[in-house]
Amino acid sequence: MNDQKALLQYTLRLADDGLILGHRLGEWCGHGPILEQDIALTNTSLDHLGRARSLYQYAAAVFNALPVADKAAFFTSVAIQKEVAEETAIDEDDLAYLRDGWDYRNVLLVEQPNQDWAYTVARSFFYDSFNSLFFKELSKSTDQTLASIAEKSLKEVTYHLRWSSEWCVRLGDGTDESHARMQQAINELWAYTGELFTMNDADAAVAAQGIGMDLAALRPQWKELVTSVFEEATMAMPTDAWMHKGGKDGRHTEYLGYILAELQFVQRAYPGMEW
């Protein structure tokens, strides 16, 4: 994989993570258990969406600068291939609305359904705790755009992590019911945490250039962070078992297809229009 293609793949993954998690959290809007928490969750959803937009804009710029042959082969998307053939530059919305699931690169964790407050908290907690370490490293990236997006995201992620850690503790150390629900959510979502630390070709390529990092190296610190919150929450750490992966390479769970069907509906039904 050449450098620019790896950078594009990497940037897209970070963008897809943000969009899909932002979309999921947005599903709570109007349906939260407490009005103040409805507002808090929408804020977080907006942060993820905002970060995704900055990253998609960057990804679009990287894509537009690729040689035509690379552009034509990069996505299996009729609409994007048409734009390439017409020599039209693509933008953030083309990336979000015109790619099918196999071109989406987000980790499987973020596409898992909300289920209930415990699953939503657990999913956010695993992701936020990873992000808090990841963006700290990424802010030192040799790629200036990614470094500055990471810098801005760190402030948001600090708040996200505080929110999700506090809720882990509240639910874990709340009632018997909340404890049981939280433990179940953690146990089930645990299998999606391994993928956060796996290195695919794009990861390896950007790490070699000092743009990315060795993700596996973040895991011990992440585990420490998770363990300390779970201790306070009186929750048992899940035992390491089989870890699902595939999202980073475009092989998703069944959930993503439904998310995209909804997310992309208007653009697909009325193609090529301004909204």
Binding site: G26, E27, I39, T42, L46, R53, Y56, A96, Q267, W275
Partner: peptide, 25 residues
């Protein structure tokens, strides 16, 4: 919110509905 036709519209709509929650509060 889940079907807004562009990322900008999605973000603006989310923020708007969130404002309504704030008004309720």
């Amino acid at each position: 919110i889940s079907r807004a036709p562009s990322l900008r519209r999605k973000a603006v709509l989310l923020a708007k509905v969130q404002d309504e929650a704030g008004h309720g509060l």
